[in-house]
Design a protein around this nucleic acid. Structure first.
Lengths: 268, 268
DNA sequence: TCAATAATTCCTATATTTTGGGATTTTAAA
DNA sequence: TTTAAAATCCCAAAATATAGGAATTATTGA
């Protein structure tokens, strides 16, 4: 009877037999409407976009506004609310990965031609949680941006260290993307490309995500040895130097290792 | 019982008689537990802190984790989740006040001895939504920090332009704070101190919030002429110069005016 | 000012969801 | 493997959400 649009961006929750979105998610998904292009939403618009009835949409917006997640700009028109900013601050202060990343801020934030990204794996999304350096450079993927699961050094450095069962699910769900990301056209090839990365301990990619740059990334682990994210550098492709890569990679692996250790300390 | 759509500005977390929190708020309030000091929470801990039963706490954490608002660090231990970072990015890209503030970034962000804050009024909270400049300076109230409603130039520049009925409610709920913020010990004095600010068009305060600094702030208005926030500068108190203040204030009023105009453009 | 129109809230019965407490299963530790 | 602890499952009672329309409240334009 209610909304048929179970928004499922990635098609991720693969074998979701019961696609029954919780009432929480149904309500929160209103917030996903707000983008750079659609910054202010009317109740009417929310009705149409989400397929809610009037009374439901009015109730949702009221509750979300009461919770501070929406802000009423004027009668019946809403923007995102300030509680998001507050939560984000709490996250910056409390999240172990963000805090561990902060450890490197002094030595990385002044970089001019190198942008540094610290990304985390959440469900099957890779998301940038912190960014340093790259002064004056335009990086398409800033803090909070979901990155493609299968493209770019950032993601590949994570993928390469995932357990088999998780990789299998990814292979099943994303075989097309895997092929187009040059990770192989069958399970064996896929496994093999990842094994190469795993054995080197880092991933390099050229212009896979952003034109004109190359990426170099190493994994970050939790105390159990599970990969939870990666540290990556993004540099102009003109600066690419085949002979120096190994040394640079060593540095990044070392930096990522320090993040892992700090993360361990913080999670204890 | 509840106010008409003019959202209840007084909030009055004081004397909440019928504190019937919605189920949404009940669930979301779990996230407020996460602080710099308590970064990781177990289900057990959440039970104790919030007074939930086992099954409720497990259900809440599961739903919140499914929604991406919590992240399971390991069995039964949670941190804040990445969806907060994503929403924050969406807010940075879409919120009219934040975007309007961005207009001034080029000319303000290089300031060394001056920190610039753009704050908004939400319910009865003043919250910093953007921050520029102040390179190397330690400012206690960074982005996402709630600021005291009655102290500091930032808040006073907003208060002075609130409609009477709203001020009355604030006076009733915060008479103690008003007195200690030198805004008067009765309604007339309160009104009068605010009228002075309103007529000058800006607020100045010395070391009211942070030691060793003074603040200078001007209001930001929405297209209806309602005050929605303020722009303020924070500078070392050594740099305070009585004769120069008026000129400086003029500049800030002008900058705040530009934010109001840009806000208007974005909200239309 | 007014009426006309649009936007929002209110209302209610039914359908759905939430809840707590304990039983059951899973996981971690020894 | 056994044992203890943690997490999930289960279910009937209680609470809440829902749709759709009626009632109320804002907004607009003369």
């Amino acid at each position: 009877m209610n909304s048929p649009n179970t928004q499922d961006v990635t098609g991720s929750n693969t074998t979701q037999t019961n696609s029954k979105t919780s009432s929480l998610e149904r309500m929160l998904s209103v917030l996903d409407l707000f983008t750079e292009e659609a910054t202010v939403w009317s109740v009417e618009g929310i009705c149409d976009a989400m397929g809610y009835t009037r009374s439901t949409a009015y109730r949702y917006t009221k509750e979300l506004a009461d919770a501070g997640l929406l802000f009423q700009v004027e009668q019946g028109r809403y923007t995102l609310g300030a509680r998001i900013i507050q939560w984000d601050r709490q996250l910056r202060l409390s999240d172990p990965l963000v805090r561990a990343a902060k450890l490197l801020e002094p030595e990385l934030s002044a970089s001019v031609n190198v942008a540094w990204l610290i990304c985390g794996l959440f469900k099957d999304q890779v998301i940038c949680v912190e960014q340093f350096g790259g002064v004056g450079r335009q990086v398409s993927y800033s803090r909070g941006t979901p990155r493609p699961l299968l493209k770019g050094a950032t993601s590949k450095a994570i993928l390469a260290f995932l357990p088999n069962r998780q990789l299998m699910q990814i292979f099943v769900n994303y075989s097309e993307e895997i092929k187009s990301a040059n990770l192989g056209s069958n399970w064996d090839e896929f496994k093999k490309s990842l094994r190469v990365i795993r054995q080197k301990g880092y991933a390099v990619t050229k212009a896979e995500v952003d034109e004109g740059v190359f990426g170099l990334a190493a994994p970050i682990f939790n105390p159990d040895g599970k990969v939870i994210g990666s540290l990556s550098s993004v540099q102009p492709i003109e600066d690419y130097d085949d002979t120096g890569i190994a040394a640079e990679a060593e540095r990044i692996i070392g930096l990522a290792y320090r993040i892992s250790r700090e993360y361990e300390r913080l999670v204890r």
